[in-house]
Structure formats: structure tokens, C-alpha cells
């Protein structure tokens, strides 16, 4: 739901991010209020993923500030209130791990060190698996699942911590239609439970009816912020080629770091 009078859950002011000296985000303001379902859209390289990474603290800001639930990001300790779903491809590591183990790692935001999982933890993990429709596959190896199912595992992992605010980075990219529908169903459940959702998407597909606010990025700036637009208005008619892209040329010497920007080093 659009919630113009609600409390601000995310408050970003003048958010600027430079990668390797190149500005990727330039002075963006964004306020997301409680219960909203916001889609960050735009072409490849427009900065939409970087904006989400800046809001979650994965990218240091060159300038500006981010408040989560009214607390500056660097002082924000209530990590169980946010759930993050990174871009796909990280669900499986070098060692087999079961769906349940991956989902359980999302519960760590609410589990103190060295305390074994309790009843509430197990119930939350079961509930998360049920919301994404993977209850019967809890003991399967993650690497044996399809891409779309792996994406649902990652959403369940974010869900296991019972957060109020979700950040999803391209959850539907490269996912087949049945899995996109399952994802949309899970996100609808979350939204109905009152969660605030910020989602990066290239194309909305089955998510379209859920979105109540679209933010369109172009060249690192927010170009549009308002009710959702038709796909053609955002992109024109074209068919994007899936794949990742680099913002910065790769490093040439072993001891070089990525932060060539002196302003980034100061932080």
C-alpha cells in the first residue's frame, strides 16, 4: 500500500556513491514508508543495485546519509529488522549444504552466540519454508535445485529472521515463469503481513500487481518516483541480455585496492 503519512522506514538523503572514482549514484533522496512495496527499476548500469547496496551498508557512501528506522546506518544494530536477498548465484558454495541449513543461517540475526536453535527458531524456519513453498525440500541439497528454487531459498533465508523491511536485489532475474509466480506469491504474503519491501527489478513480470510505487533510476539519479509505469515507459521496447556488468576496470597489480577514490578511503 502507498503510505504517504506512515513512519519513514528508510530515509536516504543525498546518497552519492563512487566506485573507483567514478560516480555511480549522484545525490539521491529516497524515503520509503512503513508497508510500502517499492520497485527500483532502470536499465543495466543505472545504479539501482548500487542504491540497494548503499542502503544496506554494503557500499560505503561517498556523501549523504541513510537512516534505517530512524537510526543512522552505521549505528544501526537491530539487524533482525532487515532482511536482504542478494543477487542470485550465492546459494551454493564449495560444500553441499541443505535448504534448511541455508534458511537457518537467516535466523542468526535473532540468535545470540553459542546458543543452540530453540523452538521459536525452528518454527520461524518452517514458516519461512512454507511461505516460499519449499516445505517438502528442506533436506535437499541447495546445489541440486533449479535457479528459481534457489532464489526462493534465499528469500526464505531473509524471511527466517522475521524482518520488517526487505531488500531484494533482482529476485526475478533469470527465473522461469512458474518460479516467478511462486516468488510473487511469497512477496504478496509478506506484504500482507505488513512488511516494507524494496525490490530491484529489471522487469516486474508477475510482480507488477504487487508494486505500489516505482522508482526509476537513470545514470545514477532517480528519474521518476511515483505509481508503477508500464514496462515500455521505463525501457522502451527492447530485450535485455542477461548478465553481469562491471562498473570499474579490474585491478592490475596484487596490492591494489578497488577504492581508488580518496574520499572513500577516509571513511
Amino acid at each position: 500500500m502507498l503510505n504517504p503519512a506512515g513512519t519513514a522506514v528508510v530515509e536516504a538523503r543525498d546518497v552519492t556513491v563512487a566506485l573507483g572514482g567514478r560516480p555511480v549514484l549522484r545525490g539521491n533522496d529516497l524515503v520509503v514508508r512503513h508497508g510500502e512495496f517499492v520497485a527500483l527499476m532502470g536499465a543495466n548500469g543505472s545504479g539501482k543495485s548500487t542504491l540497494v547496496r548503499a542502503l544496506t551498508g554494503l557500499r560505503p557512501l561517498t556523501q549523504g546519509s541513510v537512516l534505517l528506522f530512524g537510526t543512522p546506518l552505521q549505528d544501526f544494530k537491530e539487524r533482525h529488522r532487515i532482511g536482504f536477498v542478494p543477487q542470485r548465484g550465492t546459494a551454493a558454495g564449495g560444500v553441499p549444504s541443505s535448504v534448511r541449513e541455508v534458511v537457518a543461517s537467516g535466523r542468526l540475526t535473532r540468535r545470540p552466540l553459542l546458543r543452540p536453535a530453540g523452538k521459536a527458531d525452528r518454527a520461524a524456519i518452517d514458516d519461512a519454508l512454507e511461505v516460499v513453498g519449499l516445505t517438502g525440500m528442506a533436506s535437499e541439497g541447495v546445489s541440486t535445485l533449479s535457479g528459481g528454487q534457489q532464489q526462493r531459498v534465499l528469500i526464505a533465508r531473509a524471511l527466517a529472521g522475521e524482518p520488517e523491511l526487505f531488500f531484494l536485489d533482482e529476485p526475478t532475474a533469470g527465473v522461469d515463469l512458474p518460479n516467478q509466480l511462486a516468488l510473487a506469491g511469497a512477496l504478496r504474503t509478506l506484504s500482507e503481513r505488513g512488511a516494507t519491501i524494496v525490490l530491484v527489478a529489471h522487469e516486474l513480470g508477475p510482480l507488477e500487481p504487487l508494486v505500489d510505487r516505482a522508482v526509476v533510476m537513470r545514470d545514477g539519479r532517480i528519474a521518476y518516483d511515483g505509481p508503477p509505469l508500464a514496462h515500455e515507459d521505463v525501457h522502451g521496447h527492447h530485450h535485455p541480455i542477461a548478465g553481469s556488468h562491471d562498473h570499474v576496470p579490474h585491478v592490475g597489480s596484487p596490492f591494489d585496492t578497488m577504492s581508488l577514490d580518496p574520499r572513500e578511503d577516509r571513511r
Partner: peptide
């Protein structure tokens, strides 16, 4: 063995672990 859940989370997805506050 004591820190298995934390070490697993960090080893399998460092970005998620960072956002989760580890």
C-alpha cells in the same frame, strides 16, 4: 563446532552475513 552456524553463514554468503550484522 561452537561457532558453526556463524562460520557457515559467513563462508557461504559474506554479503548476506554482513547485512545480517555478523
Amino acid at each position: 563446532l561452537g561457532l558453526l552456524p556463524q562460520l557457515f553463514a559467513v563462508a557461504s554468503d559474506p554479503e548476506f552475513a554482513k547485512v545480517a550484522g555478523l
